[in-house]
């Protein structure tokens, strides 16, 4: 059926654009940074901004893959260019945050970062511990739902294709695509007897709040370090967030 085909395409788009396979992430989930390694990170991060640059780099790599995911999503490239950009600009970081639940070990609150699982401690040099904790809380709440790969694929697609974003030119066309994705997702959940997932998903506002916190933290960081060259951050990161 067309809906079944859509489901397959969403899953394939997602699998083709994943940085790491879920099996590998599962296998390595107890491979954590040692105390010494965390100290080394913190020492290296001492010049202002080193850790910010590092995280911005990793985030930008993840966002580039979100763009590839979007391009492979059925119907996305048929949207007008303005709307493709609006959806990615508003949704790319949200998709990365959703995907983070695959790379998160809820049992010891660590996330896969640069080759190993890292606790929030590793990111202390960023100077925004509360924000990092909120991200970890979000990943933990999503992890607790034990989503399958197909479910994460649909969650990402639906975070991206959201007709409620501001500045869309052809809202109706986006709404149509969103509607198709929602129907396919519901069918998948019914087939796998996972309908209880929908009411348990974190509210959209939570993702939005994390993204605005990110912007606030970045602005605060840039205010604190006015001498930092804009070129310290990857161009795509600058384009999206500054």
């Amino acid at each position: 059926s067309p809906m079944e085909q859509l489901t397959q395409k969403v899953l394939r788009s997602y699998q083709e654009t994943c940085q790491l396979g879920s099996e590998e992430l599962q296998l390595r989930r107890w491979d954590t940074f040692s105390r010494e390694e965390i100290c080394t990170y913190q020492r290296q991060a001492r010049p202002p901004g080193k850790m910010w640059q590092r995280c911005a780099g990793r985030l930008t790599e993840a966002i580039q893959l979100v763009v590839e995911f979007a391009k492979r999503l059925p119907g996305f490239l048929e949207l007008c260019q303005n709307d493709q950009i609006v959806l990615l600009k508003a949704g790319a970081l949200e998709v990365v945050l959703v995907q983070m639940c695959r790379a998160f070990n809820g049992e010891n609150r660590t996330v896969f970062f640069e080759g190993k699982y890292a606790s929030a401690e590793l990111f202390r040099a960023l100077g925004c511990h509360e924000f990092i904790s909120s991200i970890f809380d979000f990943a933990q709440s999503l992890c607790a739902l034990h989503c399958s790969e197909s479910e994460v694929a649909f969650l990402c697609a639906l975070v991206l294709v959201n007709a409620n974003r501001r500045w869309l030119q052809d809202q109706l066309q986006v709404a149509r695509l969103q509607g198709q994705l929602e129907v396919a997702f519901r069918l998948l959940l019914r087939r796998t007897q996972r309908e209880e997932l929908l009411p348990r998903l974190p509210p959209q506002a939570r993702l939005r709040a994390l993204c605005s916190q990110h912007l606030e933290q970045l602005q605060a960081f840039l205010r604190l370090h006015p001498g930092l060259l804009p070129s310290a951050f990857p161009p795509l990161y600058r384009e999206l967030f500054t």
Partner: peptide
């Protein structure tokens, strides 16, 4: 368009 030229380029690039 000018403001989002990298995003624009990534979207246009069919080889990636």
């Amino acid at each position: 368009k000018e403001k989002h030229k990298i995003l624009h380029r990534l979207l246009q690039d069919s080889s990636s």
